[in-house]
Design a protein around this nucleic acid. Structure first.
Lengths: 160, 160
DNA sequence: TTTCGAAAGTTATAGAATAACGTCTCTCCA
DNA sequence: TGGAGAGACGTTATTCTATAACTTTCGAAA
């Protein structure tokens, strides 16, 4: 299995640039409007691999960017990004994180470190398959899966 | 696979009685105090297989039971029930549902119908195994799993 | 240049959860 | 029997998360 970038040291500015470029290309292709605000929110979400709360984003927009922003501003931008598969919402944290493979239809599967708070996104068909099989076994038609695992990432295990 | 009771018509009062009796036995065994309030909250959570919000519980305690209750009253009772494995929290709904197999160490896996809101609890080792394997593959030590699937249950599919 | 619609601003409020402190009531032990 | 201590619950206040409803702005197309 390929080790996800999120759990290794890496040039993170590259992640951000790639994510923004991919997002622009994707929106172009789909006729979705990636406005300055939406792009900025996406950039903020991508500033690390740690899920970011809506009110954290709001704080940066208000204080750093000097933009007059209220909660709906942020939530609307996040809704747009969610709809277009550019970010994921982490239900167990009430927070948002950039999607590693925008465009691909997929559900997010996340490993969340309780120490450094990094969220590692997985794409394991085996997990989805096991869930789908179980659902079908009881006649349930699965539409969306939430898989969030808390624990300790490799780096934090070593440190401890 | 055995069909979970939650997705079939059944004598639900039996569920409630069983759940309360099991809870008493379990707490007795573990030296945990299942007070009147905690038992009542557990009963309310078990009144259906639909996850119930903390403030719904609060409403019943205040209005029906006539008890003076504020949010901490409910959250403390829920914390106790969670710690003792008697209820599960559904992160994607901010709601709580009775645990089907208290005492067993297990993570909840839930199928949540978006039409009737019933939560069907699964116990599929295959799902947990697939997740654990993926986590270990990247050196992540998994401690808690959240698996929540939204979709349509068998009854609602038929009705539609 | 008007107009139409989407995006963003604005105000207010709903919903979920916890912090901090006070009070009561057991049980245990002297 | 009668405190001492601990745990449970009450109370007040606040924080965090999210959305409803309405207004204004802006840009592209007619």
């Amino acid at each position: 299995m390929k080790t996800p970038l999120a759990c290794l040291p890496h040039d993170h500015s590259h992640c951000v640039h790639t994510a923004l470029a991919d997002a622009e290309a994707l929106c172009e292709r789909q006729g979705a409007r990636l406005t300055a605000l939406r792009k900025r929110v996406l950039e903020l979400v991508w500033q690390s691999h740690k899920p970011l709360g809506a009110y954290d984003i709001l704080g940066v927009l208000s204080e750093t960017d000097g933009r007059r922003a209220a909660p709906p501003t942020v939530y609307r931008a996040l809704d747009f990004l969610l709809e277009n598969g550019l970010v994921h919402r982490i239900a167990s944290l009430n927070a948002f994180v950039g999607c590693n493979h925008p465009g691909d239809v997929h559900q997010g599967q996340f490993l969340i470190c309780r120490s450094c708070h990094t969220a590692i996104e997985l794409q394991q068909p085996a997990i989805g398959a096991a869930i789908s099989a179980a659902a079908e076994g009881v006649g349930f038609s699965a539409e969306g899966q939430t898989v969030e695992v808390v624990g300790l990432c490799a780096s934090c295990r070593e440190a401890a």
